[in-house]
């Protein structure tokens, strides 16, 4: 009997481990516990929908990182990613965009920053009308704020 368990994950186990460390380094959990880390959102699901574009970009990052990246301290991981961001700023920025895109689509994250869950339509948002009496100085001073007569 084979001991190989099939997986549809685009990365092998060591790569997955490194990717998780990358995600946790880019967006760690907040100290107050209100914001999860980027590994706590469903990044695998994100890759299933955006993988065609995101996978080669992420792969390029993983190839440049040390095999021991996941075991390193936070400071060391930050230093490695900083070095990569300076060596290939465009690819780094694109990967960061994907990480933030996945992160800020997560309902826990959205609620924590004061947004509604899920798509903004059709629920929408409430916005206060505002105090139109603030216009009184403009109206009372309208002689100074007249359109230019032709």
């Amino acid at each position: 009997m084979s001991d190989i368990i099939g997986s549809d994950h685009p990365f092998n186990q060591p790569q997955q481990k490194t990717l998780a460390a990358v995600l946790d380094t880019l967006v760690p959990a907040s100290e107050d516990g209100q914001m999860p880390s980027a590994t706590e959102v469903d990044f695998d699901q994100y890759l299933r929908t955006q993988g065609e574009i995101a996978l080669p970009l992420i792969e390029a990052v993983l190839e440049q990182l040390d095999n021991t990246f996941a075991e390193q301290s936070l400071e060391e991981r930050c230093a490695q990613l900083q070095a990569y961001s300076e060596a290939d700023p465009l690819n780094f920025q694109q990967v960061l965009t994907h990480v933030y895109d996945a992160y800020y689509q997560d309902d826990r994250v959205r609620v924590a920053i004061g947004m509604i869950k899920g798509p903004v339509f059709p629920q929408g948002n409430e916005v206060m009308a505002g105090d139109l009496s603030l216009l009184d100085p403009v109206i009372n001073n309208s002689e100074q704020h007249q359109y230019r007569k032709v």
């Binding site: 380094t25 880019l26 967006v27 760690p28 936070l74 930050c78 990613l81 920025q93 960061l96 965009t97 933030y100 895109d101 800020y104 994250v109 959205r110 920053i113 947004m115």
Partner: peptide, 18 residues
């Protein structure tokens, strides 16, 4: 939030990481 975070990154006002 995505545009806020990315604009912050390019302007140097919102870092990634800690």
């Amino acid at each position: 939030p995505l545009n806020t975070a990315m604009a912050g990154y390019t302007q140097g006002t919102i870092p990634w990481g800690p």
